[in-house]
């Protein structure tokens, strides 16, 4: 594979990285199966594209995308905490509603950004940096997002959000309103997802109504791959795992595309990756138990032999 393809998956992994972090926040930190993600990603792209086409600054567009995602997350959260809708359904309802809202924002199913100023064609104009421009930009954005998220999760508020996902009864008995913490977590997670959508739209040069479909599964696949490769023993490790997982996932995707798999089969492949990854601990447990049993049998035999020896000596 050529350098271009590796560079491409690195770029994509970094730009989609914020989305993966969003999924990490809702699914792992908050333990909330939030399906808003599919809608929030497109929402970020739609809002950013629309704002840029109105002549707005592409960086401001990214920030507006971020806040639009936070609003979407808040709606999901209010459906759950206020109206007691089940977590899964609350996300689905917002996601479906966002489909119409995204079409309203874009006015059509696809908005092209090819002839307007984006954050990417700005860096591409820098001489000598042009090939690596998107990667450097992606790295910078990822660095900022990762650092801010890491700091946030260690504040009083961030710790309370983590504890809410970990042990709701305990943190309520310590005086925290868990409904508020769920709102904070869902808003943060979907803000990151929409931020990613805003970046990706500018990177691809278009926003499309279908670009968020299956985003949640891609995000989950990345989170799981990252956890398997990097681990999640500490907070910083889990955050870095999400980014690494995102890059590896994009690399796998471009690899199989190179091998000739039609792009339309990607969603199937993504689902399979998640299924395999989810079944992995079970398979490992079965295998691990077997090896443990073998070892204990060997140990038992060895001690038996020792006993025989000593009794003979005695």
């Amino acid at each position: 594979m050529s350098l271009g393809i590796w560079l491409g998956s690195l770029e994509q992994g970094l730009l989609w990285g914020a989305m993966v972090l969003g999924v990490y926040i809702t699914f792992r930190v908050l333990d909330y199966p939030d399906l808003t993600v599919d809608g929030a990603f497109t929402l970020g792209a739609a809002v950013a594209a629309h704002y840029i086409l109105l002549g707005g600054n592409p960086w401001v567009a990214v920030v507006i995308a971020l806040f639009s995602g936070a609003a979407a997350g808040l709606i999901t959260g209010l459906l759950h905490t206020g109206l007691k809708v089940a977590p899964l359904l609350s996300g689905i309802l917002t996601m479906i509603a966002l489909y119409s809202i995204n079409l309203r924002i874009m006015g059509q199913a696809n908005l092209s950004l090819l002839r307007v100023k984006t954050i990417f064609n700005q860096v591409l104009n820098i001489p000598q940096l042009d090939t690596f421009g998107p990667v450097i930009l992606g790295l910078l954005v990822t660095l900022v997002v990762v650092s801010l998220l890491y700091l946030f999760l260690q504040t009083e508020l961030g710790m309370s959000v983590r504890a809410t996902g970990n042990n709701e009864q305990m943190i309520r008995s310590l005086g925290v309103n868990t409904s508020t913490m769920k709102l904070v977590g869902l808003a943060t997670g979907n803000a990151l997802v929409a931020l990613s959508g805003g970046l990706v739209a500018q990177y691809q040069g278009f926003a499309d109504i279908g670009m968020g479909i299956g985003m949640i599964v891609a995000g989950l696949a990345s989170v799981i791959i990252g956890e398997a490769l990097v681990g999640n023993q500490t907070l910083i490790r889990a955050i870095i795992a999400a980014i690494v997982g995102s890059i590896v996932y994009r690399a796998v995707i471009s690899l199989v595309l190179q091998l000739g798999l039609p792009a339309t089969d990607l969603k199937l492949l993504t689902s399979l990756i998640v299924v395999v990854a989810l079944s992995f601990p079970l398979v490992r447990q079965r295998l691990g138990l077997r090896s443990l049993r073998l070892r204990s049998e060997q140990n038992a035999e060895a001690s038996q032999r020792e006993q025989n020896l000593s009794s003979r000596r005695g």
């Binding site: 504040t155 508020l157 310590l174």
Partner: peptide, 13 residues
């Protein structure tokens, strides 16, 4: 988390 019982949780370290 336990020490902050009874206090609002802010964006404080």
């Amino acid at each position: 988390l336990a020490l902050r019982r009874g206090h609002p949780r802010r964006l404080r370290w």
